[in-house]
Write a protein that binds this DNA or RNA. Structure first.
Length: 806
RNA sequence: GCGGUCGUGGCGGAAUGGCAGACGCGCUAGGUUGAGGGCCUAGUCGGGGUUUACUCGGUGGAGGUUCAAGUCCUCUCGACCGCACCA
């Protein structure tokens, strides 16, 4: 009978769950290995074939490490707060908690069907009060240390969702979820001071074993730039403003200044006759979305305020303009313009006929700005210096004269942390009637998210929690003072910023996790997930981790030592899978038709783990065919017992070399996450084994072990058929013998001028000199070099001989 | 525009600077079968040819380094991802 995946997969799933095969003993004495997946948001549409790709990769590592004697921590949980559940609840009137629980049940069932070796006793959900108690606790600590604060900031107000969105959640002026229009509106918000950690978040990237592309993205996101703040007086008024510049050396070339339209000074300094123009400009830009503002980037617009500033370095009066190419949110919201040496300033100056004074030699300011290095000219005491020296000297001068100072600016902005939503962790803060604000006492955590049937946004910007009087209103039992709970909730990023810590000690009620256990298990050895989390999630988690390190909660500076981003699985038409395109593949269907092992095998065989590759039904069939071939090779289809080809002794062991090669390559490839080549090597072994009449039992057992991390169900069943009573999970990983990899006779390629001209079989121990001699004496070679002079012979032992002859 | 990643058969892809195309899909042929499917075996980069171990060309394009380049360097074209008026 053919391999029956349904029967076998059901059998072993029940066995694993019943025996808690994958339970982690967190305090064991074994070496530790922590393999973490990015936990999913349990959406209503269930698991997607993209999920199991990364999960299979970590599962392979986990299963191999168990067999190599490690204590493995391999957990799964749910990032279950989030807007979709709230939107669903609004649409249907159902409780988002119930909806979420139902989705989690589906996800858990689907994930278990795929045979991942998770310790289900460590399952956590960010929505569980026992979990978010500690999310709130971390917030309180941040608040105590002054890293959580309230600020009035212009935020992305989305009327349709009745909530505020983070910049990151707004794409092209529309909400990321739902695609509703978004407008700017100032509001009081909780902010987290991630900028205080900017330098450390940047520097510590160097120590991490992460893909260079992700590190680079984080560096760009943090966007550190060094320069100077320079103070400009406003001519004839008792006002001044500060600009940030990376090129203080070009101060002599500053011919005008530009303020962001939102800059506080604009109203004060604008002259009467320019007032109308300026107001009109500001009004026009206010109504523009960010998208429209950037779309108009090619044509720079602005308007003169009528006021002049005094260039501190030469006391010249320069006009002050406003323009929306200057952003209020970056630097000081004001710039000095050096049109001769900055392309944006150049374009602006050309448009409005402003002066352009070159202060560096080289370039042609008739055509474009000169942004390269050169000797300074027209620059007083900076003349003759190059860029770097002039920057230093200019800053020294500014500091001495009290007109500026060295300054580092980041692109990174503080983390807008509050959400006007129901379905999130309540922020544990109370606003008292005397105007003070305090954190909720630690002993009162968690602040439970109350159940309610009214979760519609208030529409005023407050969250639905504001309508629940018995929850919102509190009285201090000691003083009798009345207060109101913070009604904002936390963003989805909160719970996912520390969940990897809770997995280490998921039921601890006294601490977020036991300190000794954290010492044992951190950092995470390997963390695999999608590249879409390259910046935000990973930056936020690193920030919280560093904070927890500073207050002595965690022992490491960084949470994730090795990170890997799996690629995307595209639809068969090579496009991203989506319902609207009708190219979505449901893992349940594949588990039913081909089996979980086949799905795992196929996803690992498609190509490199980090590549984005299109789904192929015939490719999937091929993966199943391989498992069938393995089954038929080892199992007699009539008796369903072990094939009589499998024996304890053979006369002529034809498989020895390929077996040892396979053990070596598969072991190394798994370690390097090169699963596609590991699988191809196993295919080579099976192809060879088919050509022999007898196969040593030891090879079969070794092969089944190698296969087990990828296809655990069929491996368990074969292990059982091989006569073992216990699970294969903790059997020793196969080893290989290096000496068995060498042939006595090896083939050497003989090249002339780098082109293959002959091959010869030689003894493996032949020396360089002998090899050279043999090559030169080879018949075909002799003929070719007969009329040539041999200039040089390069010998690569074991590989080739290259003769340079002409 | 800036930054990153990457261009290899009909397709997915493989190759510590050392025999390009492993492995799989697809296709072709033979075998097995009442037939089909399945399975087994063999072939499958292109041109030429005396078609087993012959020969020439070949990794987006153009140069370069090297005894030797898919791999390293320069330029260029193209694709994808991220950021985007960041002073």
């Amino acid at each position: 009978m053919a391999y029956d995946h349904k029967k076998v997969e059901t059998k072993w799933n029940q066995y694993w769950l019943k025996n808690k095969t994958f339970k982690t003993d967190a305090s064991s004495n074994k070496k530790k290995f922590y393999a973490l997946d990015m936990f999913p948001y349990p959406s209503g549409s269930g698991l997607h074939v993209g999920h199991p790709e990364g999960y299979t990769a970590t599962d392979i590592l986990s299963r191999m490490k168990r067999m190599q004697g490690y204590e493995v921590l391999h957990p799964m949980g749910w990032d279950a707060f989030g807007l979709p559940a709230e939107q669903y609840a609004l649409d249907t009137g159902n409780d988002p908690a119930e909806f979420t629980d139902k989705n989690i049940d589906t996800f858990r069932r689907q994930i278990q069907d795929l045979g991942f070796s998770y310790d289900w006793d460590r399952e956590i959900s960010t929505t569980d009060p026992d979990y978010y108690k500690w999310t709130q606790w971390i917030f309180l600590k941040l608040y105590e240390k002054g890293l959580a604060y309230i600020d009035e900031v212009p935020v992305n107000w989305c009327p349709a969702l009745g909530t505020v969105l983070a910049n990151e959640e707004v794409i092209d002026g529309l909400s990321e979820r739902g695609g509703h229009p978004v407008e700017r509106k100032p509001m009081k918000q909780w902010m987290l001071r991630i900028t205080a950690y900017a330098d450390r978040l940047l520097e510590d990237l160097d120590e991490l074993d992460w893909p260079e592309s992700i590190k680079e993205m984080q560096r760009n996101w943090i966007g550190r730039s060094e320069g100077a703040n320079v103070t400009f007086e406003v001519a004839g008024q008792d006002e001044s403003f500060t600009v940030f510049t990376t090129r203080p050396d070009t101060l002599f070339g500053a011919t005008y200044a530009v303020l962001a339209p939102e800059h506080k000074l604009v109203e004060k300094i604008t002259t009467a006759d320019q007032k109308e123009h300026v107001s009109a400009y500001i009004e026009k830009n206010k109504s523009k979305s960010d998208l429209e503002r950037t779309d108009l980037a090619k044509e720079k617009t602005g308007v003169f305020t009528g006021a002049y500033a005094i260039n501190p370095i030469n006391n010249q009066e320069i006009p002050i303009w406003i323009a929306d190419y200057v952003l209020a949110s970056y630097g000081t919201g004001a710039i000095m313009s050096v049109p001769a040496h900055d392309q944006r300033d150049y374009d602006f100056a050309k448009t409005y006929n402003l002066a352009i004074i070159p202060v560096l030699e080289g370039g042609d300011i008739e055509k474009e700005a000169f942004t390269e290095d050169g000797k300074h000219i027209n620059s007083g005491f900076l003349d003759g210096l190059n860029k770097d020296d002039a920057i230093q000297k200019a800053i020294d001068w500014l500091e001495k004269e009290g007109k500026g100072e060295r300054q580092v600016t980041y692109r990174l902005r503080d983390w807008l942390f509050s959400r006007q939503r129901y379905w999130g962790e309540p922020i544990p803060i109370i606003h008292w009637e005397d105007g003070t604000t305090t954190g909720v006492d630690e002993s009162e955590l968690p602040v439970i998210l109350p159940k309610t049937t009214e979760i519609k946004p208030s529409g005023t910007g407050e969250s639905p929690l504001a309508n629940i009087d018995e929850w919102v209103n509190v009285t201090d039992p000691k003083t009798g003072m009345k207060g109101r709970r913070e009604t904002n909730t936390m963003p989805q990023w909160a719970g996912s910023s520390w969940y990897y810590l809770r997995f280490i000690d998921p039921t601890n009620s006294d601490h977020l996790a036991d300190k000794d256990l954290l010492n044992e298990w951190l950092p995470v050895d390997v963390y695999i997930g999608g590249a879409e989390h390259a910046v935000l999630h990973l930056l936020y988690a690193r920030f919280w981790h560093k904070f927890l390190y500073d207050i002595g909660v965690v022992p490491t500076k960084e949470p994730f030592q090795k990170l890997f981003n799996q690629g995307m699985i595209l639809g068969e038409n090579n496009e991203k899978m989506s319902k609207s395109k009708g190219n979505v593949v449901n893992p349940d269907d594949i588990v039913g038709s081909h089996g979980a092992d086949t799905l795992r095998l196929y996803e690992m065989f498609m190509g490199p783990l980090d590549a984005s590759i299109a789904w192929s039904e015939t490719g999937l069939d091929g993966a199943r065919r391989f498992l069938d071939r393995v089954w038929r090779l080892f199992i007699n289809e009539e008796t369903e017992e072990l094939s009589e080809k499998i024996v304890n002794d053979v006369e002529d062991d034809k498989l020895e070399k390929v077996y040892h090669e396979t053990v070596k390559q598969v072991t190394e490839n798994y370690q390097d996450l090169k699963f596609n080549t590991a699988i191809s090597q196993m295919m080579v072994f099976i192809n060879e084994a088919y050509k022999t009449d007898q196969i040593l039992t030891a090879y079969v057992e070794g092969f089944v072990k190698l296969l087990s991390p990828i296809a655990p169900f069929i491996a368990e069943e074969l292990w059982d058929k091989l006569g073992h009573d216990e699970t294969i999970t903790f059997e020793a990983w196969p080893t290989y013998d290096e000496t068995k990899l060498e042939e006595n006779e090896i083939e050497i390629v003989v090249q002339i001028l780098g082109k293959n001209r002959a091959r010869m079989m030689v003894d493996k121990d032949v020396t360089r000199e002998e090899l050279e001699k043999l090559a030169l004496e080879h018949e075909a070679i002799k003929e070719r070099i007969a009329d040539k002079t041999v200039r040089k012979v390069i010998v690569v032992p074991g590989k080739l001989v290259n003769i340079v002859a002409n």
